[in-house]
Design a protein around this nucleic acid. Structure first.
Lengths: 99, 99
DNA sequence: TCGATAGTTTTACAACTATCTAATCGATGC
DNA sequence: GCATCGATTAGATAGTTGTAAAACTATCGA
């Protein structure tokens, strides 16, 4: 198979990810990341969704801890990258658990 | 395709489902439902997970409102059925949104 | 009809969380 | 060094939610 070395997530990881997805703003952020295709600057995210820096930082931390995004810091700037492999493993895990 | 008339969920429905999945006990209940293959009596669920009737009732209501289970009442008994079609539509929706 | 049983609803409470302001940290430019 | 700017952290607060006790509803058996 083309993608056979897919990671298997623990129940804790799945739980973390579901919790991360359960906030509408975080879900929205992830959708933006996906649509942009590649890394998205923190400022860019703030530009498209009316959110204070502190709140955004909090949400990004949550997404990072869930493993859904990777934070790339360059100088005083930060960018976020969607971790598609983790998302795929997550969907795979839920599928295996519940379907 | 074998299953082409798959339902498309709204963002609100996806959000409801993610929230429903975000509680460990609810996720556990769904796993039991899946493992049992068919309908599971309320009493049976209570038998395998140390939960008070009130709390279970609350969680089942949540799962029902999310569309993830169907509640079947017969006399004074209640059984729960996993709605696999909704779960599949959910995974499909998240996949379309984020991958 | 009574009493027992299965589930639900109400109510109350503790724990959690999203949000913001203010303070802080780190890097960049003068 | 000092000021500025981007981002994070700390603290405070309001709203949400999981939990269970108690009251309630509905069904069944005697």
């Amino acid at each position: 198979m083309a993608n056979s070395k897919r990671k298997v997530l623990s129940q804790d990881q799945i739980h973390l990810i579901v919790k991360a997805l359960s906030d509408p703003r975080r879900y929205e952020i992830l959708k933006h990341l996906r649509q942009s295709g590649q890394a998205l600057a923190c400022e860019t995210v703030r530009g498209c969704m009316e959110i204070t820096p502190a709140t955004l930082s909090h949400h990004m931390k949550e997404l990072e801890m869930a493993g859904l995004v990777q934070v790339v810091r360059e100088g005083k700037f930060a960018s976020y990258v969607l971790r598609r492999d983790v998302l795929e493993a997550f969907l795979q895990g839920v599928h295996a658990d519940l379907i």
